[in-house]
Structure formats: structure tokens, C-alpha cells
């Protein structure tokens, strides 16, 4: 066992499952010899051959459509879309077909596929390479949206996503691809989907987040602890279907909740969580539910992206204000 990054954990999970499941195939742009632009699929083609690890022509809608055809036939394709900013060409296939195939054939056909895409800002990437538009997928019935935020959860959740019999959009926070290293046993152990992970316990305030913002939030919780505020940190992990139960039971203790996401504020997943709290947990709330989010603007180019991204400081400020609310 060695310490590995989130990116290496993705690679390890893919490698493990390719070995275990002879129906699993990988497809995408530059994923073969090149091992993907981030190297998530490094060495997999040389190990499993070009029939299992396939470089495709450059067409995102085609990649999704072909993955659907493969999945219908019982293969377990894991398709890579190079950046989330290019996934929109595949939206028609994902929304119009993958999400509804099981339902529209009454279970005769199904679509056990995973579409992986790196998302989010903070790596000084070019235009169209930094957005967080997970809400677009979370709105679609029939899909699962899974977002890991650590090497351990990347490994366990990706295995679970591949083994899941329905389509999963697996969004990888590229900003923390190499941020931390975890010691992970390569034992093929999957983590549960559809469940939040409580990363830190605290009775004063609940901080709900996902993706790269988990790092900022954990940092904020540490700062808050020094100031005497005990924050509970929840990593949503599966955005759809959303495990509100874990959030309700935390808020039942804390009575205060901040939702942190990189995605633009309006109609973001934070609004869904806040609305659920208002509908079902109003009596537990001691203060308004607050969101710390990206602005309702186009993601700025790299020089100014730090102004857009929520920081641990923003979270601390919002939390301090919220604990003093009466």
C-alpha cells in the first residue's frame, strides 16, 4: 500500500475493475497511449489492450451515444469526457437516452454506463475548462451524479458507479486531483452511493459541500475550531439522488446550515438543499440557511478565477455571522 492522489485513485479503481469485470471497457479522447490529458487512464491500454481501452475520434456526443449502445448490449462502458466544458454536446444522449432507456422500455433494456469528466476551477486552465455545471445533470430523473472529494472516496465511489446498473455521471474535482495523498488498499471495496459522508463532527453549525470545496470547507472548519465554533462537515458525494436524511439529522443538532458550492448561485444544488430544509426541517433551524457559492457570472478567465471561487475565508465569515444570528 502506498499513498496516492485522487487522480491515481481513479486510475487504480479503473484498473481494478477492468481486471475483475471482463465486460468493462473504457472509451474517450486520448485515453489510450496518452493515458488521458490528466493521466487518469495511464498504462491501462498497454495492460488491457486497445479493445478494452479505446481511443475515439473527437466527438463528445458520439462518445456518449456509443457508450449507450455498448451498455444496452451488456458491456459496462466508462467514457471519459475530457473536460466538463465539452460535455454539452453529449447532453442530448445523456438526457434524452441514457437517463430514460430503462424507464421507456419497462426494464427490457438498461444503460449501465459511467461518464467521467473533470470539472471545476482553480487550476488556471483556459476558457471552457473551469466550470461547475453539475446541476444540469442533477436535475435529470434516471441519472446519478457522483462527485468524489478525496482519493479514498474517488476509489470507492468510482467502483460503486461502475458496478451500478444505471447511468452515472462521475465528476472529478480536478483542482484536488493531486492535492492530498491517502493510503488506500487496492481491495476493490466500493463505497455506498446515494449517501453523504460526514467528514467532521460538530454541534454548532452544519457545512454541506462537495467536490473541491470540501478542501476549503475542511480548512474553514479548522479555523472555526480555533475560534471555538464546532462545525460539522458533510460531503454530499452523491448529488443525485440526494441524501437529505444525513443533512436533516445534522441540522437537527446544529440548527444552522451553510451550503458551499463552486457552481453559480442561482438554481444551483444549494437551492435544492435549502428548499428541502425549509420544507422539512424548519422547526430545527435557528437561523436562515445560507449559501456560499460562485457568482451568477460567467467563470472569469484564469487571472481572476480566484475572485469567483469560494474560499475558506468566505466560509469562515459566513459561519461566524450565522452562529451569532439570533
Amino acid at each position: 500500500m502506498s499513498k496516492i492522489t485522487l487522480l491515481e485513485a481513479v486510475n487504480m479503481a479503473l484498473q481494478y475493475e477492468l481486471q475483475r469485470d471482463s465486460n468493462m471497457v473504457l472509451l474517450g479522447e486520448d485515453i489510450g497511449l496518452n493515458g488521458g490529458v490528466f493521466r487518469a487512464t495511464a498504462n491501462l491500454q498497454s495492460e488491457f489492450g486497445p479493445t478494452r481501452v479505446m481511443d475515439t475520434p473527437l466527438a463528445e456526443s458520439m462518445i456518449a451515444g456509443v457508450a449507450i449502445g455498448m451498455a444496452v448490449q451488456g458491456l459496462h462502458p466508462v467514457a471519459e469526457i475530457q473536460f466538463m466544458g465539452f460535455i454539452y454536446a453529449a447532453m442530448e444522449q445523456i438526457v434524452g437516452h441514457a437517463a430514460r432507456l430503462r424507464n421507456r422500455t419497462c426494464g427490457r433494456l438498461s444503460c449501465p454506463l459511467v461518464i467521467r469528466a473533470p470539472f471545476g476551477g482553480g487550476i488556471h486552465a483556459p476558457e471552457h475548462h473551469s466550470e461547475s455545471t453539475e446541476t444540469l445533470f442533477a436535475h435529470i430523473p434516471g441519472l446519478r451524479v457522483v462527485i468524489p472529494s478525496s482519493p479514498k472516496r474517488a476509489y470507492g465511489l468510482l467502483l460503486a458507479a461502475i458496478r451500478n446498473p444505471d447511468p452515472v455521471i462521475f465528476l472529478e474535482p480536478k483542482r484536488i486531483y493531486r492535492a492530498v495523498k491517502h493510503t488506500i488498499a487496492n481491495d476493490g471495496h466500493a463505497l455506498p452511493l446515494d449517501s453523504c459522508f460526514t467528514l467532521r463532527e460538530g454541534r454548532d453549525i452544519t457545512l454541506v459541500t462537495w467536490g473541491a470545496q470540501v478542501m476549503e470547507t475542511l480548512e474553514a472548519a479548522e479555523v472555526l475550531a480555533h475560534k471555538g465554533v464546532k462545525a460539522e462537515v458533510i460531503d454530499v458525494a452523491t448529488l443525485k439522488p440526494l441524501d437529505m436524511k444525513t443533512i436533516y439529522s445534522s441540522v437537527a443538532y446544529t440548527g444552522r446550515c451553510i451550503i458551499i458550492h463552486e457552481a453559480a448561485r442561482s438554481f444551483g444544488a444549494g437551492a435544492e438543499i435549502a428548499a428541502n430544509l425549509a420544507e422539512h426541517a424548519l422547526q430545527d433551524l435557528k437561523a436562515p440557511v445560507v449559501r456560499v457559492c460562485g457568482y451568477d457570472t460567467v467563470m472569469p478567465l484564469l487571472r481572476n478565477e480566484h475572485y469567483y471561487l469560494p474560499s475558506s475565508r468566505d466560509i469562515v465569515t459566513a459561519a461566524e455571522k450565522l452562529v451569532s444570528f439570533n
Partner: peptide, 28 residues
Amino acid sequence: DFKGPRQDMPNCIPISTQCTHACGIASA
């Protein structure tokens, strides 16, 4: 939920989107 051709695809309404499904099936 065809009782006969169990593996045939259902009618595709969004124009032309079935073409890449056919490639995926052929690829399998």
C-alpha cells in the same frame, strides 16, 4: 417492451441520435 425482438432498440424520437447507438451495439 417488445416481447419478440428483445434486444432491438425502441423507437428513437430525437432525430439521428440512434445512429451512434447502432455503432455502440456493433462495437459490442
